[in-house]
Design a protein around this nucleic acid. Structure first.
Length: 423
RNA sequence: GGAGAGAUGGCAGAGCGGUUUAAUGCGGCGGUCUUGAAAACCGUUGUGGGUAACACCACCGGGGGUUCGAAUCCCUCUCUCUCCGCCA
């Protein structure tokens, strides 16, 4: 959520920036500013009414103490009008506040200056491409390989739960566990502190990171207890810092967590959902950073480089895209997507997305630090996948397939205990 | 799941209808003293809104109510603790 003060002071700039996201904000922003002005006017009127009431109450207290009962009773009369006024003003105030809030949540985050205009993913800018020779030579879609090796069973998942809930079996399960451990160990070596967090969150948490109110349909909801299944570890990990003021010397915060993720993916279909490409439940290792506005873009670059390093170690041909205005998410100011070229499907698969949200999340989280003058300021939050498991598994299977089996990347063998999954 | 108790500032903990814009202690920060440190002493120390700066307003788990006036009384929700039951 953008800050009201920012909108007020940078109206034209905000409108200009949001055009990059193909979002015409002028009407919305005008309306917000106008209502905000009204709101502040009413607030000051309301405050003076409350102030009068406080004073009268104090006087009445003193009169009673002095035994002047009649005078006190008379004073009470004076509050009648004030109370009525208070009711009117506070109703107005509440309504305005609600209206402003409902408008302001419709505004996307303003993109960073480096984010270029564009309509679709076609317009994303390729920042880096690292072509790494694959270990395999027989390229097939991973679902065929899985079936032959009996390592991931989609049908079985259908029986137990439904589509999008595969069962990883035998070497498939081990490969997955190896990857999780590899990612966690790498992140720890890079200075990220490991966290294990709840897989369900309450409404407040879902709201704070922006899943609610607009993306409600993407989450699984447990009605009796009013919990949401997390769509990403970003939600619980970032919410560690809800309503927190961090001392500057504790920054940057670098956290990593492994969790399963749950997404309803309503409306998805076709080749995008085949096999491991899109699931309702999948595993992911997520990295989160929190730092000051001055440092946050340096942190973003670090995270990007870190993810690239992982992909290199895995021996996967990858590229890094800086998302254009049309493709970047609602909440992000700048996003890099990492894609891996998967030979069996002959397509690029998105395996990571690292973003700087600037103050868009911290504003709702009320996540702040104290600056040199001991004043509180909003922090910048960043996060990224490092990495999402299913598509990594898919591309390892597809790129490393040989007639004898799938070759395990060198960096993983100490975790798997085997070097090849044999036919 | 049953019964009871409770939720107050960074922490501990008083206050149970009117100089409380919350006592006191610890911790933090600044200072005096000291070669330096400790101790002692003095001062200071929540968040948000608002203002040029003050004033002023809101906040004692969340929401609602009673009252001229609520941390304090009532209703409701959430959470925590103790005992019992169940249980990985």
């Amino acid at each position: 959520m953008l800050q009201i003060a920012y909108i007020r002071q940078n109206k034209d700039k905000a409108i200009e920036r949001l055009k990059i996201k193909n979002f015409n904000a002028s009407e919305l922003i005008e309306s917000i500013i106008q209502k905000d002005e009204q709101k502040r006017k009413i607030k000051s009127d309301l405050d003076s009414v409350l102030s009068s009431q406080n004073n009268i109450a104090k006087e009445i207290g003193l009169l009673y103490k002095g035994g002047k009962k009649e005078a006190a009773e008379q004073k009470k009369e004076e509050t009648k009008l004030l109370k009525q006024k208070e009711k009117e003003l506070s109703d107005l105030f509440d309504n305005l506040e609600e209206e402003i809030n409902s408008l302001i949540v419709q505004l996307p985050n303003t993109p960073h200056e480096l984010v270029k205009p564009g309509k679709t993913s076609e317009d994303n800018e390729i920042v880096i491409e690292e072509k790494i020779e694959s270990l395999g030579n027989e390229f097939r879609p991973h679902w065929e390989i899985c079936e032959r090796l009996k390592i991931i069973d989609f049908e079985l998942g259908n029986k137990i739960t439904g589509a999008g809930f595969p069962v990883y079996r035998n070497h498939g399960a081990k490969l997955q566990r190896a990857l999780i451990n590899f990612f966690l160990d790498e992140a720890t070596n890079e200075g990220f502190e490991e966290q294990q967090v709840p897989l369900f969150v309450n409404e407040d948490s879902a709201y704070a990171t922006g899943q609610l109110p607009d993306k409600e349909g993407q989450m699984y909801h447990i009605g009796v207890d009013n919990f949401y299944l997390i769509p990403t570890a970003e939600v619980p990990i970032t919410n560690i810092f809800r309503d927190v003021i961090i001392e500057k010397d504790k920054l940057p915060i670098k956290y990593v967590g492994y969790t399963p993720c749950f997404r309803r993916e309503a409306g998805s279909y076709g080749k995008d959902v085949r096999g491991l490409n899109r699931l309702h439940q999948f595993d992911k290792v997520e990295i989160v950073q929190i730092d000051t506005p001055e440092n946050s873009y340096q942190r973003l670059e670090e995270m990007r480089n870190y993810v690239c390093k992982l992909l290199s170690k895995l021996g996967l041909h990858y590229r890094v895209l800086r998302l254009c205005g049309g493709d970047i998410s609602f909440t992000s100011a700048m996003t890099y997507d990492m894609e891996v070229y998967s030979k069996g499907q002959d397509r690029w698969l998105e395996v990571s997305s690292v973003s700087n949200f600037e103050t868009f999340q911290s504003n709702r989280l009320k996540l702040r630090y104290r600056d040199e003058e001991r004043k509180t300021q909003l922090l910048h939050t960043l996060n990224g996948s490092a990495l999402a498991l299913p598509r990594i598994v898919a591309s390892i299977l597809e790129n490393n397939n040989t007639k004898d089996g799938v070759i395990i990347p060198k960096c993983l063998t100490k975790y798997t205990g085997f070097e090849i999954i044999k036919y």
